[in-house]
Design a protein around this nucleic acid. Structure first.
Lengths: 231, 231
DNA sequence: TCTCTTTCTACTTTCGAAAATATGTGTATC
DNA sequence: GATACACATATTTTCGAAAGTAGAAAGAGA
């Protein structure tokens, strides 16, 4: 979470050498997008070559990912990709919905003009991809993931509770892993999400906390159920 | 969280060399017990000497502590002890109470004989310290912290939601930092907590979820309010 | 005197080799 | 054939040195 923000701000860095921060996010991204199977061992020899970093740097990244719940670690036996399960998806979904609803309520209560403006901005960025025809959307899927995160984060950014935002982000990141299985969703789905995001933005800007809350619940539950069916 | 459990199971390890796991928990313990002031820079040169580990190992520990929220990190500028504030204490308390109440409810619904037995066992271990006169309690404060954690964890251990337990543990660990300021509490406080823990155990074993829930709320809220007043 | 550049110092960050640990293989013994 | 032991290999874990950076101090030009 902390690292996520920093990685985002440092994307215009000098250039050249990969760096540890970068290895961390690339590794996380590879786990989220199922490049590595759940339960698979992440050997240092292979990983250092793949991400072009030393063992120390890699270990730090893996260690952090274990705190975030993406990998498991057993002392002396190395790191593995954390398992996924239907039960876990259900649990994560419940926690995320509860946290997101509380956060958006707080944000609506405390948000100012900057908050509103940023929501409109990132929603536009998101809609630029979601409005695209199916094939084009698929091609830019990783960009969509990023913008989708930005949009949902913008909605709750004005929430003053730092820990609420932190716990929320943890659950959101975990959901990303499961969201990935619906990548190859039927054609109609993208259009539906497009509309849901628009309505969610409008309800939030209208400061209708109850409506926004309900839309979030339905929006997330729907995505999760779809993922659950494909698992 | 994950690391905490492992450290606990590995306490009967061979002996000798400090090791990275150990450095991590000693560092966390030093932050919790305010050996280092909030906002203070944690320089590698000093820390490697203090904990007798290499820079890589130390970095891994600090990195993990930043995920847990005990230290902050700014790229290129190193690590600092995370700040504390009254606002944060209030927020963490609210989250912890909500999570703990849900977890104990689940535990009561799912717990079996082993769960009950373990609660009785660790409560006894805790009461051995809490029953002591004031001075003796003070001397064994770090043991009390450990046993207090064990007791509260035992109450919710039968909760099937792994993420609920995980989030709960995060908040509990954060509260430890604030709990420490009440270490030098008036004489009567220890006796009161002794009784509260006993009642909490009894309500849980009687499977009275509502009662246990209320006791938890009062128990935690009381401690937090006391800490808040001293902050 | 002020500001901009340069140099120097303290510190962080990264790497690859060495030490410690686990796993697998073969051999002897019952 | 099964079990225990010793050795060899694979893998993790740790360390200290080298490279890279940020911030302070010193110096040059206006």
């Amino acid at each position: 979470m902390t690292s996520r923000d920093e990685a985002a701000t440092a994307d215009a860095s000098p250039s050249g050498s990969s760096g540890g921060r970068d290895a961390l996010s690339r590794l996380r991204s590879d786990i989220v997008s199922s490049v590595f199977e759940p339960e698979m061992r992440l050997k240092f020899a292979e990983m250092t070559k793949r991400y072009d970093v030393g063992v120390g740097t890699l270990r730090e990244a893996l260690s952090q990912l274990s705190s975030e719940g993406f990998v498991t670690v057993e002392a002396g036996k190395g790191f593995r990709v954390a398992p996924v399960s239907a039960e876990e998806l259900v649990e994560i979904t419940d926690h995320f919905i509860a946290l997101e609803k509380r956060a958006v309520r707080e944000a609506i209560a405390h948000g100012g003009e900057d908050w509103e403006t940023h929501i409109v901005a990132v929603h536009h960025r998101l809609s630029l991809i979601e409005g695209l025809p199916w094939e084009a959307r698929m091609e830019r899927h990783s960009e969509w993931v990023e913008r989708h995160r930005e949009f949902h984060h913008a909605l709750v950014a004005a929430c003053p509770g730092r820990w609420l935002l932190r716990l929320r982000s943890m659950m959101f990141d975990q959901l990303d892993r499961y969201r990935f299985v619906t990548k190859k969703a039927p054609e109609g789905l993208g259009r539906k999400k497009f509309e849901e995001h628009r309505l969610l933005m409008l309800a939030t800007l209208e400061r209708d906390a109850d409506k926004a809350s309900d839309l979030i619940e339905a929006h997330i539950r729907d995505t999760s159920d779809r993922a659950l069916a494909m698992l």
